[in-house]
Each structure stands twice: as C-alpha cells, then as structure tokens.
Design a protein around this nucleic acid. Structure first.
Lengths: 340, 340
DNA sequence: TTGTAAGCGTTATCAC
DNA sequence: GTGATAACGCTTACAA
C-alpha cells in the first residue's frame, strides 16, 4: 500500500505465489490452462501485492492498444460532446475505450495531440480538425494510424470522413425563412475561415438566389467566434440598424450564436419571433430548452459519432479497407422562434 | 506510406542511415552528442521512413507517462468541461497532456476507466466520482497512481480532494431569497444520493432554520437527474400547486435544472422574477446568457481544475507529499432572475 | 500442467 | 562520437 514503491510485476507475483512467471501470465490470459489450486494461489498473490497489469508492456508486445481518441475543437460545445457520446457507444461494442482530447481550436495543440496519440499507437483517431486540408492529417494516416475526419467532408479521397451537408443545411434554414415571408434576412456567423460557416453561408445564398431575391437583402454579419457572447454582440449590431433596413429574421451559423442573439433580443424588449425570427444550427439540447424554443437545423450527432467509429475500426482491422466519405442530410426542426 | 506495414522502429532507421541503433537514440535524446553529418543522415532516414517513436516502449523504460486523465460524471455538463479547461491549463505548464474520460454517471464505466488508466501508468487521475466513498478510489491511490477527487470533499484524510463548500453554497442561495422577502421557497434537486445535492439541501435548511422560518414552508421537490428536462418537469409540478401554497421562489441544485424551470415558467406565461424568483448553482456560461439572466452560486471552476492538477502532480513527484483536502468558498452572483 | 526463453522498441551504460 | 548490450514487463511458443 505504499505509493512510492516500485510497481508490482508478474515476476513479483510469481515469486510470492511460488510459481513461474509464465504461469502468472497464463492465469491472466488463459486461465483454463491452469489448475485450480495454482490459479487460486496466483490470484491471492495478485490481490495481496496489489498487482496492476502494465499496459505499456502489454501493448509493446501486442502492437496495438484498446483506445480510440476523439480530438474535438471545443469541449465546451455540446455539439461535440454529443458526437462523442455516439462514439463511446459504438466503441464500447468493439471493446474500445474513448479518450477525448480538446484542441481548443488551436492548431499547435492539435498537432501535439496527434503526435502523442500516434506515439501511443492508439487504434484510431477521430478528429474535427482546425484545418481539414492540413498536411499532417494525411501524414498520420500514411504512417499507419487510422484517422477519420468528423464534421468536415474531404475533397481528396485519401481520408475517411463523416459530415453533414452544410450547404444543404444553410439552404433549408433560409428556405424556411423565405416560406415564412421574410424578404430581409441576416446571416450571422464567422469567422469565414471555418469551413462549416462558409458552407452554411453559401447554402443561404443559393436559396436566396433561387427564390429570385436580391443579394443585398441577405445581410452578412460576421462574428469572431461561434459563442453565446458573440451572438449577443451580433444582436446589438442588428439593433443598431435603421428600422427600415433592419432584417426581421436571422439565420445563425450555430446554436450558441442563436442563443446569444435570442437573449439580447428578448432582453432589449423585442419579441421572438414577432420582431425577429431566429434559426440556429446543430439543434443542441439547449435549443429546444431556450426561453423561446429555437428553430434549428439538426445534425445527426450520435450517428456522426457512430459512423466515424465504424470507419476507423474498419480502417484498423480490414485489410481491404477503402477510404470512404459519408455525408448525412440535415433536417430543419421548426419551433416557436420562427413559427410564433 | 502503407498503413498495413509494420511500424518503423529505431532499428529500421539505423539500418537506413547506416549507423547503429544507439546513435539513433542519441539523435532523439541527446542530439548534442552526435556529429552534425550523422545527425542529418539520421534525421533524413527518419523522415523518409515516417518514423514515429513508440510511446509504449519509451514508457516501459521510463516507468511513467506524460498524461493525466480526468474522469468526469457527465461530459455534456458545461461545469465539468470548464473544470477540465482549468486542468488543461496547468497540466500544460508541467508538460502533461490531458485525456478526458466520461463515466456518464455509471459506476461500472468509472471502474473500467480507472483500471485502464492505472494499467496505462498515467501520471495521475482526477475524478469526479459517482460515489466518493467507493473503496476502489482508495485502492487506486494505494497502488501507486496519484488520484485526486474533484468536486467532493473526502471525510477520510487518505485522499487528496478539491471541492467547494456546498453546504455554504446552499446557505448563500437561501439567505439571498430570504433577504428578498420570500417566506415560501422550493428546493429543487435530486436524486438525494448525489452528495452535492444533499449538501446544498442541507445548507438551505440551515439558513431557513437560522432565520426562524417554519420547516414546512421550505418545500423539497426531488428530481431524478440534474438536467434541463427535469427542471421543466419540476416547473410543471410547481405550477400544479394551489396558488395559496405555491412558493414564489425556487433554489435549484444546479443551473441545468434552473434553466429548465426558467423555460417552463416563461413558457407558461408567468414572469421571472415577479411570479417566480429562481436561483441556480454552478454559474455556467448559459446562466448569464439565459433569457432572464440567472442568479447563481458560482464555483471557482478553473481554480478547482488548477488546484486538483497541482495536487496530483505533487503526489506524483514529491516524496514528502501529504494528502490535502482543499475547500473553496462559493459566491452568490445576483442577477435579474431574483432582482427584477 | 508448468517452466524457460525470446522478443516487442526504447533508453542508458559502458567500452571502443 | 559511435556502437554493442542489458533492462523495462509482458505474452507466447516450445520444452520439460
């Protein structure tokens, strides 16, 4: 029971039990090949000494680990933890354990985690990358660690990916607002260096053009991050516009922005959706639980996680694996924030 | 570049560079002892072969890893991801990397993760346990893996812990409501098997008794989980009470409950705080961003994470380490949901 | 049924 | 400055 002591090895257990080291290993790995009395002796010794198998040695021998890792952009965004839940579920079925790593939107940290995980020889890496085109993602896969990009499609065919059609998602959101009769709409999101934001904005523009509406009545309001605070800021900018030109509807690039916008709108005495209709994106749990339940574009979060896990396992175990790009279809969930 | 091929070892690099294996190791660990031309040759070989250090072998040799893990109760609760952020920050300073594991409030999963992490010989484990008195927590520490309990105080002195005084937190919340003139208050939370909930409820009762108010006017409304959905359910039960006996104020055991209650209250046409004052607990970001900014009891989340990390590092590296129980003081943040 | 020994990839010690 | 070698703890043939 002394934390400072060297850790107990199979050799120590063998000595204590008065058997050879191979027998101890047999107790651990093929208990049926060991006689009952011997087995009991060994198990007793293990308990008495507080033996804990050394996974490094095990893995060094076996050549692979029982872990998959998911490197997320932002652990505080419920969207990613929901995807992670999907991963956990299907990883568990394959007897794999999940470690979540937070890159915090920092390319340096992302790289460092990727290096560490490769060195650990994890079974596979799932990642929502800062930059899906970064060379080092391809290197990882090339060096033998299966890797799947989550929430971004890959243009190349040299990596697996699971994603949602964000252009379509943007379309759905704006078509819905057009259906509700809006002719002045704000798109709120940014920075545009984030691919997801770019795609949703593009979809919004397409829907707008298809409806024959003039481009200048679809307003772009960029933010510096996809957070609640930025959403409130965008609301203030919106309020500042002269009422003639002020959009009566907003499509936010994610739900955190939409929740911030919602709060600022209600807080300044205006009503949702009467004074401002709001559409979010992701359909996180807080969206339906908002003071005014939020219309949002739903992504199949658990399925993203599940599919990504299946792909990474296939890449790890199936010699005939071919890289696959899976795209899911988003769905608009209409609630009070646009329906009144 | 073939994912199926055996992974490249120092031996392969040595062969390719035409040097001995020891020299390759020197390039990696003491580059100053190697002549420039040799170093360049070796580095080139590494690049060409796509060499990735094997952490298992490294760790087997070194005896310890560069990882700390934080086992959380619920990865989807922003409170825990905020604590995790504090951990990441200070772990980074010690050149340690953080893996987040989600027990999902399941004692079985918690155990399995603890086993895996011990086997991995991680530098230390931080954990918000399902049951802080569980024997296996003590066993972990006893077997040599430093372990710190986060967000629960330990009665025994045989483990490190960092926590917030939840009894005091409960007091602060209810004293605030008493100050605002309330004489009928509901405590909403559960299940009471969760220690945090028990402590907050106890603090609430103490404040109530100290003010000389009758126990029957402090209503206990238990929930089956600390979630938004349960908060809405509690709101419905509250609405169902005859108006004479209906409390005009509620103290929720965490912010997720409070947000659910807030939504249900506003959604059913009542006003906050005029018809119902609400106090939450944790002060997560969504609290201040709610439609009615939420009065909440703030816990120093980042500091919890930071301190826990420092303790676990001390336990791992300082032979004179003594187990320490750190308790932080919570703080009431008064906002519109009680102030009007 | 049990014991012996080789080897996984790395690092560090010691000769050269 | 460089190269051979032992050791870390475990698993698995194979020998007894």
């Amino acid at each position: 029971m002394n934390a400072a002591s060297r850790s107990v090895s199979v050799k120590d257990v063998a000595a204590r039990a008065g058997v050879s080291l191979g027998t101890v290993s047999n107790v651990l790995n093929r208990p049926d090949r060991v006689s009952d009395p011997t087995r009991v002796k060994v198990e007793t010794a293990m308990r008495e000494l507080g033996f804990v198998r050394n996974e490094s040695a095990r893995q060094l021998r076996a050549g692979h680990s029982r872990v998959v890792a998911y490197v997320v952009l932002d652990a505080a965004n419920p969207f990613f933890t929901d995807v992670a839940q999907g991963v956990e579920l299907s990883a568990g079925l394959a007897d794999l354990w999940l470690f979540i790593c937070n890159s915090n939107n920092d390319a340096e940290r992302e790289r460092a985690y990727l290096d560490l995980l490769q060195q650990q020889r994890v079974q596979g890496i799932l990642i929502t990358p800062v930059d899906p085109d970064a060379e080092h993602l391809r290197e990882v896969a090339g060096r033998g660690t299966p890797l799947v990009v989550v929430d971004r499609t890959q243009q190349g065919l040299d990596l697996c990916s699971v994603a949602v059609d964000d252009v379509l998602g943007g379309r759905l959101a704006v078509e819905h607002l057009i259906d509700r009769g809006h002719t002045q709409v704000a798109f709120i999101g940014g920075p545009l260096s984030i691919g997801q934001v770019r795609d949703r904005w593009q979809g919004a523009q397409q829907a707008w053009a298809d409806a024959g509406l003039p481009p200048e009545s679809l307003h772009l309001i960029t933010t510096s991050a996809l957070t609640v605070v930025e959403g409130r800021g965008a609301g203030e900018r919106l309020s500042g516009l002269p009422s003639r030109r002020r959009p009566m509807a907003a499509f936010c690039a994610n739900d955190l922005l939409a929740l911030g916008l919602l709060q600022q709108t209600i807080g300044s005495g205006r009503r949702v959706p009467d004074d401002l209709a709001i559409v979010g994106y992701d359909d996180i749990e807080f969206a339906s639980a908002a003071a005014v339940p939020l219309t949002s574009v739903r992504q199949p979060r658990h399925e993203l996680g599940r599919t990504a896990t299946e792909l990474v396992i296939d890449e790890a175990t199936n010699p005939a694996h071919t890289h696959t790009q899976v795209t899911f279809t988003p769905e608009l969930i209409a609630r009070t924030s646009t329906l009144g």
